[in-house]
Design a protein around this nucleic acid. Structure first.
Length: 262
DNA sequence: ATGGTAGCGGAGCTA
């Protein structure tokens, strides 16, 4: 049975519940992973999602910041969260589908503005988060698993609008890219988006601060879909819904989709 | 080098 999965940094699920419902109604993914819900779990407005057939949710939340949720038409078994780097933030949750596929939904710390852990505690926390994630999945050796989320790093030269201009900008510095690639390889993860779309520039985020984001197109691919090697070949039809970034009062991220024949 | 926008919560932090 094929299933379609999407990941989207929603930047407040309460403010943008109507946008979530619109995406669910128009695109009908089986599973939608959200990041930056910025809400305690019991305050997430689930009624509209239920009405569209998304009757299952596994989430972790906190007041005002962070927060991750998995909405699903298929039953979900809550398989817990890991507090990578011990930050005490709601940045990870996982759940298992009836077909045995485990989904990890991650929100990696943005890391502040200065790419130096001696001058900027947040940058160190970002690197530590990725190191812990790397070690965790190296030990766990995941199988039949998918990891999605806002990983807050654009790893490839064609994942940013200007590689040279962004080499010292947090999200594209070599040390971050190294940490992300090490984490991916240690867990045996395959970048499904790039396996499906190996050529050309791909962005999933455009800053709110750009007055004309669409024309300027100074984007970065911060949102990712990974899968373990045993199921990565089942992934196909990856796509980024750029139009969603142009909806009224949008998130600054566009949703990333993939379909798996499993 | 700076400032540009947005959400939360009601000032300043985070992104």
């Amino acid at each position: 049975m094929p299933f379609t999965l999407a990941t989207w940094n929603i930047n407040s699920v309460r403010l943008r519940a109507a946008l979530v419902s619109r995406l669910l109604a128009e695109e009908a993914p089986d599973v939608l992973c959200l990041q930056e819900c910025k809400s305690p779990v019991d305050m997430i407005p689930t009624e509209g999602f239920h009405a569209l057939g998304y009757t299952h949710m596994v989430a972790r939340g906190q007041k005002g910041y962070n927060g991750v949720a998995i909405l699903s038409k298929l039953p979900l078994e809550d398989t817990g969260e890991t507090d990578f780097a011990g930050l005490g933030h709601a940045r990870h949750v996982s759940a298992r589908l009836p077909n045995g596929v485990t989904i990890h939904n991650c929100y990696v710390p943005a890391g502040g503005d200065i790419p130096d852990r001696d001058q900027n505690v947040k940058f160190g926390q970002k690197l530590d988060y990725l190191t812990h994630l790397r070690d965790h999945f190296h030990e766990q050796r995941p199988a039949r698993s998918i990891l999605v989320g806002d990983l807050n790093i654009a790893p490839r030269e064609d994942d940013v609008w200007d590689h040279k201009a962004l080499l010292k900008i947090v999200s594209h510095t070599p040390i971050e890219v190294d940490h992300l690639n090490e984490a991916r390889e240690a867990g045996g993860w395959v970048d499904v988006t790039r396996a499906n779309l190996p050529e050309g520039r791909l962005y999933s985020w455009w800053s709110y601060r750009s007055p004309d984001w669409n024309a300027a197109d100074k984007g970065r691919r911060l949102d990712h879909v990974w899968a373990t090697a045993d199921i990565a070949n089942a992934g196909h039809s990856s796509r980024i819904l750029r139009d969603v970034r142009g909806w009224d009062q949008p998130s600054d991220h566009a949703p990333v989709f993939a379909t798996f024949d499993l």
